[in-house]
């Protein structure tokens, strides 16, 4: 898990989190990232090959600034040989699937499984992952399906689930906020744990240590 936090002036804390954006090919990962980071949308984006990076800086509250590194990872199955490297050190993940493409949900579950195998928190728990049902502007999800989705999320260990549309800018910020909130929570907990274990450091001073 990568968290870099430090005190800047006036006790403001800065965090750096690495967040993965994973999911099948062509479900809208890059579009999601572009929408979130730059608030732009392109119908035709180039295929991602390897990994793309973006950074989003969030002034979370008066005392906290979060720098979110978004790793937009190529979705094609065969590129997954490289995932081990890409996943390393991430603090959270968006797992994206395409509402209009049923098979991509299976893909998303596979991605989640792989994620959990590759990365975990220091306490052995899976890192927070949010399931994004993207392209919700194209299909309406019935209430029943929505509840099924919620259920599925819980079963599969997702932190939460959002229906999003990068195109229409639906739920993009909300989903991100939700994930960041969880990451911060976990971060705080782990800091407390560390403090309890090692009573060397005063409260806010967290070292930036990357696993």
């Amino acid at each position: 898990m990568r968290k870099m936090s430090g005190d800047s002036e006036l006790g403001c804390t800065e965090h750096l989190f690495k967040v993965l954006v994973i999911g099948d090919h062509k479900v809208g990962k890059s579009s999601f990232v572009k929408r979130y980071v730059r608030n732009q949308f392109y119908e035709e984006l180039k295929t991602s090959i390897g990994v793309d990076f973006s950074m989003k800086v969030i002034d979370w509250d008066a005392h906290t600034r979060v720098r979110l590194q978004l790793w937009d990872i190529a979705g094609q199955e065969r590129v997954r040989g490289l995932n081990r490297v890409y996943f390393r050190g991430s603090s959270g993940a968006f797992v994206v699937y395409d509402l209009t493409n049923g098979s991509s949900l299976d893909g998303a579950l596979n991605w989640k499984r792989e994620l959990d195998c590759q990365v975990m928190l220091k306490n052995g728990h899976p890192i927070p992952a949010v399931l994004l049902a993207n392209k919700c502007d194209e299909t309406k999800v019935s209430r029943r399906n929505a509840s099924l989705l919620e259920k599925l999320c819980q079963e599969k260990g997702f932190t939460g689930c959002f229906q999003t549309s990068a195109k229409e800018n639906i739920n993009v910020d909300e989903a991100a906020k939700f994930l960041v909130k969880h990451i911060l929570q976990i971060n705080e907990e782990s800091m407390k744990e560390e403090e309890q274990k090692i009573h060397l450091k005063p409260q806010t001073n967290t070292n930036s240590v990357c696993c």
Binding site: I49, G50, V51, V79, L82, V85, Y86
Partner: peptide, 8 residues
């Protein structure tokens, strides 16, 4: 690691 930047 190289594959972070050289894949594409």
């Amino acid at each position: 690691e190289p594959i972070l930047y050289m894949t594409e």
